[in-house]
Amino acid sequence: MSVLRPFKATDLFKFNNINLDVWTETYGLSFYLSYLSRWPDLCCVQEAPSGRMMGYVLGKAEGVSNEWHGHVTALTVAPEYRRLSLARNMMSRLELVSDDLYKGFFVDLYVRCANYVAINMYESFGYSVYRRVREYYGNLGVGKGGRDEEDAFDMRKPLSRDPQRRSVRLNGRDMIVSAHDVS
């Protein structure tokens, strides 16, 4: 039982139970406000009936011509609400809007190569690895997971405008690019 609703600026006053988490970054005001002032329909919240926030997604639309796509910037669910399909619901909402409203060709996201749980989850949603980006999370340095910790997989899922599935490929894990090629 979770309410799906738009992310509002005032949610920044109540997202502590989600953001006091080592993997969820808390950004400056301008980060959230710039997303909300441009792509409010790609930002939404899952909320318990009590009003407690359970998780949220922040996304944007970017790229040119057949690279025009929806992008998942942040997807997070508070620990106590994990394994309840919240991420799946939020992702399908973002895909719906990227497809119907923004007319994007695909949706993409970045994930740490060491984060098997997340990668499996995205694969079950229909995403596949498009390329490996070297040192994408370079700021933390090489951690316990070695290179996998700081490299990212760029994962993609084609939308209805790409019936030929041109935005994905089979051997994505072997396609290696450096961080400055993608940003």
């Binding site: 600026a9 400056g28 406000l33 909300l36 002032s37 441009r38 409010p40």
Partner: peptide
Amino acid sequence: QETAEFITRAFSAEKYTQIPDFMTF
């Protein structure tokens, strides 16, 4: 310093749904 700027950006991008929220915030 920052929030007012996004109220004007929301006007420019015509994201009217956000403006009252930004002001409240």
